[in-house]
Design a protein around this nucleic acid. Sequence first.
DNA 1: AACATTAGGAACCGATCAGTACAAAACACG
DNA 2: CGTGTTTTGTACTGATCGGTTCCTAATGTT
Lengths: 193, 193
Amino acid sequence: MGRPRSFDTDQAIDKAMQVFWTHGYEGASLPDLLDGMGLTRGSLYKAFTDKKTLFLKVLDHYEGKAVQAGVTLLTDPAIPNGADRILTMFTNSYRAVTHGDRRGCLLCTAAAGPSMYDDDIAEAVSAGLGAMRNGIDEALKASPKHEHMSDEARGALADMLIAQYMGLRTMARARLDEETLENVVRSVRALLS
Amino acid sequence: MGRPRSFDTDQAIDKAMQVFWTHGYEGASLPDLLDGMGLTRGSLYKAFTDKKTLFLKVLDHYEGKAVQAGVTLLTDPAIPNGADRILTMFTNSYRAVTHGDRRGCLLCTAAAGPSMYDDDIAEAVSAGLGAMRNGIDEALKASPKHEHMSDEARGALADMLIAQYMGLRTMARARLDEETLENVVRSVRALLS
DNA sequence: AACATTAGGAACCGATCAGTACAAAACACG
DNA sequence: CGTGTTTTGTACTGATCGGTTCCTAATGTT
């Protein structure tokens, strides 16, 4: 009953994600969001309560999309060597930059920004990063060079690789040379193989 | 001639650095800065032109202080093995967190934030990170395990370690478990030794 | 002591911020 | 076809943003 919503909620969240991805949480103004999502204030607040709630939904959406894509890659049995999966993930991040996408990783940007003072955002970011970490850990289990490590040491290596990933993505956002980014990937390759 | 300034410029910049360090560039409001610096609008704008100029001066100050301290450590002949110097740098970052300092690295926060859209800030951030990178490279030259690497490979490893460092510092800001941070340091130790 | 010059401080500026109120519009259901 | 319910769009809110104006206070110079 009542007037039906004229837009698809999930699509709207996806568009909001694009805006937050490029501008960051604090940098994305409401007009930016309304413009990018193609709807007006009334509709946005009726559907998403407020900016922060929308951002949390966006983070959730990002987890279900970008993060999930990463985890899928990291556990992809079609790439038998897990180290190759991890390396593909790093290479993809590098490729994004050479293809003109310097937005980096939404989670990493949020980690450096609002995670500092907002508990809910910090938790959501941690969850997303944790999911990727576990994906890396799984991939390491399928790596001949690492499969014989202790659970503890392998987990620690996964933590290190997540930090490495965050650094690479943040470097991209900071507009560092493509050569530098390539060097990072190259050294990760040397480390893993 | 004229009335002399009643505050020390360098001290004021140092205080401004503290404010930007915790709140980030965009997150630090003018009242935040005035409060932290202990002066009024008139004085601030007379001495530092505007917020962005002040931030650039702060970045410069950060380079001359925090970055320089890092480079000094990385080239400290008192620690004969360069790998140990690098490891000390990572350990220090971890220690900062266990001592209650979760602000991370000002350069890394700026890298994820305003570097995206402001050329001047991006350049200053790049310069600071580059200085640290070179410090790491120097340290690697003094590491028995790495001193025989080609210049190219060693430089690439330095780039990787800077990314690693950025990731660790960003993780701290995102309030990840101390255990996770410790794991990162542990794995870096395993990598370098 | 008079004057030029600069700093300090508070009031003020338009712009923009996130968020709200409310009336008009569009549908579902009876 | 009417009625109730929800969305939509717009006008508006108070707060805050970074920045300016302008007057006064404090100094160096002559």
